[in-house]
């Protein structure tokens, strides 16, 4: 039983991270109908910036709590600036272009960001500083670490904050209006460009938080880390129904659970023929099965037809 519980915890921790990154994809998609393929790299930049500022601050003997908060803030600001720039440079000029054109610029942006990060932070894997002892807690026979507990709590807080922002604030209403119908929103006096920029910045801020959390959890940072994470988060967003915020959260957590239960039990389920090497196959099969029965994802209601 404790093994099963442990796998659920593993899945939840992993899933919380996916959910945060998936939110970035889904917000942009909801508004622009565009897959922001460079989003994974924003997560990486967030992690890298946090790494450097944490190293500097800890080197200056700043109190660890303060150092963590400040470097998280620095990472958020850096990522917001980056998100804003990416949108201005690579997406805005293509707003009326064929819909695959921004996909290519996104790939270009990914390559550029990765290469720049490689030049700035080097090719090697960096250890992410750990100012506190990461103590273990027993939960009914399973174990969870401080950092993991922190990840789940922060993710929950961020997501509820985001929901409040979008459903209760003026800006949120503008965002929903643009997602619903950009030209009508513009006629009603919403500044579309501003809303789009703000959406990118918001998504990037979440990416920075996710980047920080991933690095703290695994203790390792590398310029290539954004690619797989971005891909998984994108899958999660689609699973939940891309463009739908609750869907992204649900999809993220579900993907985390599917992966960890898949890796844990696929061998027993298939009588030892398949092992944890088929973890991703299992995850994609679940995704395909979901999409066959619900072609717009678990919670997606909007039909995406822009082909």
């Amino acid at each position: 039983m404790d093994i099963f519980l442990q796998q659920i915890i593993n899945g939840l921790v992993q899933g919380s991270v996916y959910a945060l990154v998936a939110l970035g994809y889904t917000m942009v998609y909801g508004i622009l109908g565009l897959i922001n393929f460079a989003h994974g790299e924003v997560v990486m930049v967030g992690a890298m910036v946090a790494l450097t500022s944490l190293q500097v601050l800890l080197g200056l003997a700043v109190a660890p709590v303060l150092a963590i908060l400040v470097s998280l803030f620095v990472a958020i600001v850096a990522c917001m600036a980056l998100g804003y720039t990416i949108e201005r440079v690579a997406y805005r000029p293509l707003r009326n272009a064929p819909r695959l054109a921004p996909l290519i610029t996104a790939i270009g942006v990914s390559i550029v960001l990765q290469t720049l990060a490689m030049m700035i932070w080097g090719r090697e894997y960096h250890a992410f500083p750990q100012p506190f002892a990461n103590s273990l807690h027993a939960v009914g026979g399973a174990i969870i670490t401080d950092v993991q507990l922190g990840i789940v709590i922060v993710a929950l807080l961020m997501m509820s904050g985001l929901m409040l922002l979008i459903h209760r604030s003026r800006f949120g209403r503008a965002m929903r209006a643009v997602a619903e119908n950009p030209s009508a929103a513009a006629l009603m006096g919403v500044d579309i460009n501003r809303v789009i920029s703000a959406t990118f910045m918001l998504g990037s801020a979440l990416a920075a938080v996710a980047g920080f959390m991933v690095s703290a959890n695994y203790g390792i940072v590398h310029y290539y880390m954004g690619f797989m994470l971005g891909l998984k988060a994108f899958t999660a967003a689609v699973l939940g129904g891309i463009g739908n915020l609750r869907g992204a959260m649900l999809g993220g957590v579900m993907l985390g659970l599917i992966e960890s239960l898949g890796a844990g039990y696929i061998g027993d389920l298939s009588g030892g023929f398949f092992g944890s090497n088929y973890q991703d196959v299992f995850a994609f099969f679940v995704l395909i099965a979901v999409l066959v029965f619900r072609p717009t994802g678990l919670l997606g209601e909007r039909v995406a037809e822009r082909a």
Partner: peptide, 21 residues
């Protein structure tokens, strides 16, 4: 036990949990 991961993975909690059992 024979478990697997990939050369891009960073999370090994699931396979390690299986092995722990």
């Amino acid at each position: 036990a024979r478990e697997y991961t990939t050369d891009k993975a960073v999370d090994f909690a699931a396979v390690l949990t299986t092995i722990k059992g």
